[in-house]
Amino acid sequence: MLKSRLPALDAILPVFAVISFLVYGWTLVVFLWKVPSWMMFLTFGEILSVFAYSMTSAFLESLAALAILLLASMLLPARWMREVFVTRGSVAALFGLGSIMLYMYRLSVTGYAVLHDLFPWTWIALALSLLLTFLAPRLRFVIRSVAWISDRLIVFLFLLLPISLVSVIVVIVRNLF
């Protein structure tokens, strides 16, 4: 029953690849930006442990974002989501996560002054993401582009997932012993 409500694995994987590319990409860029300052006072091992936490966090975040899309797929009629999961899932991830990242980038540049538009930004970003997600399967070139991009992003999972697995183990070990 549950399985019949979920998209096929070969549809889930490209969407997970898009989500992971965004989430891991952001974390890695900020991590690399921070490394020079950590090198001032943290040892190599300590920086690696921060990396392990970061990769674990990115992995869990990616799973959480995917879970939201899978939940939508289970709850909505099949032709709304399950049958067009790659297109709608990828577009939702791109615009949903993208709007969050854009806001956080603005915050880093402008400081807390932008906080006053946090709520409007959220509502507008949510509405736009939903609208674009709704429209995406109607535009042939979007379907083709998203399929092309998401398919190519899968290759990163071969790198990111093993790193995440090792990182999860490191974090568990550090917190158990």
């Binding site: 970061s54 974002a65 969050i100 980038y105």
Partner: peptide
């Protein structure tokens, strides 16, 4: 000190 959160969604 840290203008950007390492996790965009958690920072958000």
């Amino acid at each position: 000190v840290n203008p950007t959160a390492g996790s965009a969604s958690m920072g958000y």
